[in-house]
Design a binder for these strands. Structure first.
Lengths: 236, 236
DNA sequence: GAAATTCTTTCTGTATACATATTGTATTTT
DNA sequence: AAAATACAATATGTATACAGAAAGAATTTC
């Protein structure tokens, strides 16, 4: 483990963050202070500070006298998510087109390169993290301190929802992620061109793609089975 | 000071929060850990936890090796604020109409009673805090975990901006706050009626009233003075 | 044998001591 | 005298020890 305590805190922060986003730490799971403080060579004091930071950003829940947990996901949060996401995503994308700097475009392109690399050879977790990074950069570009907190919370659960529902299920899935990557390229171009209207439309398109994919798994097509195939309860 | 440590932490939290909202602690001012830990009979450990909570909610900024400061306000934050506020306020108001519970309506009415009481006999700080409380309740009613973080940050700086610009300057001011109170009454009625459209319109009206008042102070009418009244630099 | 209660163990919260970094001051040097 | 450097004082970050609360295990009681 690294010598510098500041680096070790950073490592803990990034580690927990990635574990939450990839569902390696599923919603509701408990975090063990003692185990983590040994793993990262930190005493409990700085470790608990990191927990509090992560709680403030929406990754963890801190319960009185009862330790830290990964923040929960429920039907309600899913509903809240679908309500809030289009508005916030649209606003962030439009602002990104207006406020982006040249350096941020490079960062966005780097994130997109990472995303495509994850598509080619990475795991589902790598893909989720790379996609998350891409959208984090758009948030930095939008550069509005009042929008960012909600946007970042949406990104957390977007990653987790995607990890839940985007499973490797053949061609449909492959086409979907490839389409998402193509949209990312369009987003970069529109942001570079400072085309606010195009960014607004791309936000909608990108959201619809994501939403459609999620809905497919939440509400799959009904099974097509002849009635007679099911034994009735009378014949028990 | 209270015996229960949990209560003392709560007291510290509320005290700093109110001081930030009322500009008693102006943006950028340093917080003294030692002084506050003595004042609230807390050791530095729990005190710093409270600081971290407040930082997560946008009240404070925590700088590495350099203590806590009240979060800054700048021309940029003011601009960010005017950009984000209408959208978020509108969304929260509409959702409040849809999701409010009966108990929350009572809480909202209580907040409004407190606001009117502050108008009659309270200080500017009391008014700002009571108004803040009213809008906090609308946020609770909206009940969307993704919108709340941004909404609450807006409320912090709305209170601080109002404290800066709404000064007791005679009849204009009195008419303005009285109008605001009347709008609050309309808001309660519309939320009670679950009238989402009316709430959306009231959000716009209420925002415009607030915005107009701020603009009056940011951009006052130019002085009307005859040219000859100004001594020219030649006559020095 | 099942339920309840008590005791033990484990974990969370707080205080304090110590290490490290920063800031202000005084001294030295040019 | 001004600037720079070294030193002292102060404040922040970390570790650890202790106190208190929750959870679990074992015993007792019905």
């Amino acid at each position: 483990m690294s010598a510098d305590p500041k680096t070790r805190k950073e490592a803990l922060y990034e580690s927990v963050k990635a574990a939450v986003l990839t569902l390696e730490l599923p919603p509701g799971s408990d975090l063990d202070e003692t185990a983590l403080s040994e793993e990262f060579s930190l005493s409990r004091t700085p470790l608990r500070e990191v927990f509090r930071n992560l709680a403030g950003e929406g990754y963890l829940d801190l319960r009185e006298n009862r330790g830290a947990r990964v923040s929960e996901m429920s039907h309600k949060t899913l509903r809240d998510f679908f309500l809030a996401a289009p508005m916030i995503y649209g606003a962030v994308m439009r602002l990104a087109a207006v406020n982006r700097t040249a350096a941020q475009i490079d960062a966005l392109q780097a994130a997109q390169d990472g995303f495509r690399a994850a598509l080619r050879s990475g795991s589902g977790k790598d893909r989720a993290l790379a996609n998350n990074r891409f959208h984090e950069v758009t948030g930095e570009m939008a550069d509005n301190i009042y929008l960012l907190p909600s946007f970042q919370r949406l990104l957390i659960d977007h990653a987790r929802i995607s990890m839940t529902f985007y499973r490797p299920l053949g061609d449909d899935m492959a086409r979907n992620v490839s389409e998402a990557a193509a949209q990312h390229d369009d987003v970069i171009a529109a942001i570079q061109a400072r085309d606010e209207a195009a960014c607004g439309q791309l936000a909608i398109d990108h959201w619809n793609l994501s939403r459609g994919q999620i809905e497919l798994f939440v509400m799959p097509a009904g099974l097509d089975m002849p009635l007679g195939a099911l034994p009735s309860s009378r014949t028990a």
